[in-house]
Amino acid sequence: MYDFTYQRAVSVDDAAAKVEGADDAMLMAGGMTLLPTLKQRLAQPSDVVDLSGISGLAGISVEGDKVVVGAMTTHATVAASADVKSKIPALADLADGIGDPQVRNRGTIGGSIANNDPAADYPSACVGLGATIVTNQREIAADDFFTGLFETALDDGEVVTAVKFPTPSKAAYMKFPNPASRYAIVGVFVAQGSDGVRVAVTGAGQDGVFRASEMESALASNFSADAVANISVPEGDLNYDIHASSEYRAHLVTVMAKRAVNKAG
């Protein structure tokens, strides 16, 4: 690992100021993606600004019909939260399936969505539930937040502070995990809420998470696995790698969508 200057932020403003004041700083949340990246010398920040000492960034609250998850909330905390389990069990389920227990003890929702790995789980929940990403500067609709492979709408030094999830009437997440890492080869998040049905697919798209609009309209008129059974997403837009071809991923999207619809009930 190249050396850097470790700095501990005491507030969100302090974190933003530390990033601003450094040559080329990176924020650190759980470090479960950042530290392996640094170990492999794939990045060389001048400074690493640790968000873990900021009080108030971790925790879950229910505000009206929304579940608000602080950016520094770990996957383990989301998975175990009574509020999340009762309001959005699909979200607790998703968090419980991320990586392994030690990754879940450290990894955070803020870090996961800021990183926007095309195979990460949380982006599908954010888009599938029509969540709002709250930063120190503004609120961004999930549909506008994930802009491409490892790309988001975040500006330099912009800090995610929370994610607001509307409570759906029903929702479920199904993933076909990579057996080694547990990242999604394909993951499908299906939700029915006040703004209709959403189907968000992760793991498969070349540009990361996307909405399967044909499935959404079919489910809007008939919320059943049969409604999506004959709908497939275009293979040409899908990833292929040593784990799965685009053809296989396209097939999995339909299978996972059917299973998610069944599970949502």
């Binding site: 530290l35 392996p36 492999q40 640790d50 873990s52 383990a76 030690q102 003890n105 450290r106």
Partner: peptide
């Protein structure tokens, strides 16, 4: 490993199991 996957480094920090290869000593 150097990919945070193997768990040979698991210790407890403040009562929770974590991978000690994926946290800075300064933290």
């Amino acid at each position: 490993c150097d990919t945070s996957q193997c768990g040979a480094c698991v210790v407890h920090k403040d009562g929770q199991s974590i991978k000690s290869c994926t946290i800075l000593a300064a933290q």
